[in-house]
């Protein structure tokens, strides 16, 4: 029983609560770095490392951090992790560091990481939090990888940097540009809605999953606060 629970936590992030396609968190890097599979992989790995570090640290400190100042504390921890990852990438994998550019420091404000800290790590044990981080990280990386594959194959006619014979002469350039990102992301979510979730999502945008939902509920999503209570019950 214990073992299946642990496995469930790990698998949760990959399928049932896929951070990008189901929880709709971290949309900015998802759209921006999926022009090439290599970049997507780098981004996924970097975010997973940060997530693992922050989840473990927050879970260890969850009884020490006062509830009122928890968000700033989380942000400091996450920013420290991001800085470490940035330095490691800069030193060892410079090409990825260059390609990710601005989006590497922006992992700090990636909602997935703050969201998992708020939703999972501050309530669960260290081992569970680490598993959750790994699961979520794999889910994030896989989604990025799938999206980047679609965009790279159609848009550049290559995959993982290798040219694909027919497609590379007939590439659809727009797929690697901004509109392609939005469209592929939209279609992927629609496919997931169709085949993997039992009922179509009621909420327009996953407010209940956003770390700032409590504030957001006051303004944007009028129905969100009610929904949140329902979830809590």
């Amino acid at each position: 029983m214990e073992k299946t629970n642990k496995l469930a936590i790990l698998l949760n992030g990959i399928i049932k609560e896929n951070p990008v396609l189901v929880l709709v968190l971290g949309t900015c890097p998802t759209l921006a770095v999926t022009t090439q599979t290599v970049n997507a992989f780098g981004m996924g790995a970097a975010a997973t490392a940060v997530l693992l570090f922050s989840n473990v640290a927050i879970s260890l400190l969850r009884k020490i951090i006062p509830d009122k100042v928890r968000i700033p504390c989380y942000i400091v921890l996450i920013a420290a992790a991001v800085t470490i990852v940035q330095m490691v990438l800069n030193a060892f994998v410079y090409s990825v560091y260059e390609a990710l550019g601005l989006f590497l420091p922006l992992i700090v404000v990636n909602c997935i990481i703050l969201g998992r800290a708020e939703m999972f790590a501050n309530k669960n044990t260290v081992v569970d939090s680490a598993l959750d981080a790994i699961g979520m990280g794999i889910g994030f990386t896989l989604t990025l990888f799938v999206m980047a594959s679609i965009r790279e194959i159609l848009g550049a006619g290559s995959w993982m940097g290798y040219a694909i014979p027919v497609l590379c002469d007939n590439n659809i350039g727009i797929m690697t540009m901004a509109p392609g990102g939005f469209a592929v992301f939209g279609i992927l979510i629609a496919v997931v809605n169709k085949f993997f979730t039992n009922k179509p999502k009621k909420s327009e945008f996953g407010c209940e999953n956003c770390p700032t939902a409590s504030v957001c509920a006051k303004i944007a999503c009028a129905g969100c606060s009610e929904k949140k209570e329902v979830v809590a019950e």
Partner: peptide, 22 residues
Amino acid sequence: PACFKGLPITLIAAAILSCSFF
């Protein structure tokens, strides 16, 4: 289509809007 309701169709609209900025 039901599976496109909500976020997916919004993203597709965003794709078309971003085309215009080209």
